[in-house]
């Protein structure tokens, strides 16, 4: 105690603290410089996105936001030098195939996620599944198309169903991982409470874990859908394309926005090029809509 007292600076000898800001100090300069660099890179990183949106609006918007927009959104694709037309069948085709893909990947994905997050998270099967699922997120989308081509198309031909199956292969890992993460976020104490009330394990999952994790699960599903809606490679091998309205889910090729964009963008006709731009804009708007929905449901409500 006494030793310490002797070491203390006498108040009169203590210099007055200098608290004013010194802009030219190396420390302050470095701070300003690095902050500026992060700003610059943030802006540069968003340039491609904004330029794409600008280009889509500029070149696709003229056709889409004109008086003829109903025709664009509903009519069949024009042939050769024909004027007018639209891509109604492609919008329907894309939505139908995404729906089929969701109908397959959501139940499978949810069941797998329940196993991974609640039933036996540490088992060897769970670890293997998790590793494979993570690998699958980087699965080349064209291989999903080739895979479904081999198992379905060679026997039954091109169809919306085959396209949906190919998209589901790509959606599945996203759904599994997002749903697992969402259900893992459900606190153990909440599960304990449910067991303490006399819930069976099934009831703990259906009454507590799934409802509590629902916003996160839905976000994952929406993001998977948004991703699948923009895919083109897997559809080349499975749904192909059609110039007519979708009538049957199997036995006939089906149109999709992404393949229509691919087809029309290579054509020498102004009308088709314009429609390709408009279709691109519609596709981006669809993806954007799913993303916005995902953000809305994903926001936790208290």
């Amino acid at each position: 105690m006494d030793d310490n007292a002797q070491n203390l600076i006498v108040d009169s000898a203590r210099p007055t603290p200098q608290l004013s800001r010194k802009m030219m100090e190396p420390r302050a300069l470095r701070n300003t410089l690095l902050t500026g660099i992060t700003w610059a890179f943030a802006i540069i990183a968003s340039i491609p996105l904004f330029s794409v949106i600008y280009m889509l609006l500029a070149r696709g918007g003229s056709r889409l936001f004109s008086s003829g927009f109903v025709e664009v959104l509903t009519a069949l694709p024009p042939a050769g030098l024909q004027q007018g037309g639209g891509f109604g069948n492609a919008i329907v085709g894309t939505l139908v195939m995404v729906l089929i893909a969701s109908a397959i990947s959501v139940p499978f994905g949810l069941m797998a996620a329940v196993y991974l997050s609640v039933l036996d998270p540490q088992s060897r099967l769970a670890r293997a599944t998790r590793l494979l699922t993570k690998t699958m997120t980087g699965f080349p989308s064209i291989l999903a198309g080739v895979f479904v081509y081999a198992i379905l198309v060679t026997s039954f031909g091109y169809s919306a169903l085959a396209g949906g199956v190919a998209l589901s292969v790509l959606m599945l890992p996203t759904v599994v991982l997002a749903a697992e993460e969402a259900m893992r976020q459900v606190p153990q104490k909440m599960k304990d409470a449910a067991y303490g009330m006399g819930c069976t394990r099934t009831q703990v999952v259906t009454k507590v874990v799934l409802p509590t994790g629902l916003p996160g699960i839905l976000t994952g599903i929406m993001l998977a859908i948004a991703g699948a809606a923009g895919e083109s490679a897997p559809l080349l091998f499975t749904a192909l394309f059609s110039n007519y309205h979708l009538e049957h889910l199997s036995g006939e090729p089906a149109a999709s926005l992404s393949i229509l964009i691919y087809n029309f963008s290579g054509m020498p006709f102004a009308n088709q090029l314009e429609l390709a731009w408009a279709a691109s804009l519609v596709l981006v708007l669809i993806v954007l809509a799913f993303n916005i929905v995902a953000r809305l449901i994903g926001t936790p409500k208290i």
Binding site: K189, M190, D192, A193, Y195, G196, G198, V208, P211
Partner: peptide
């Protein structure tokens, strides 16, 4: 054990209401 817990209830250390 599930039935036992319906007769013998439990209150935990940390408050743990359900998210509902």
């Amino acid at each position: 054990p599930v039935v036992v817990r319906r007769y013998i209830g439990m209150v935990f250390q940390q408050p743990n209401p359900f998210s509902m």
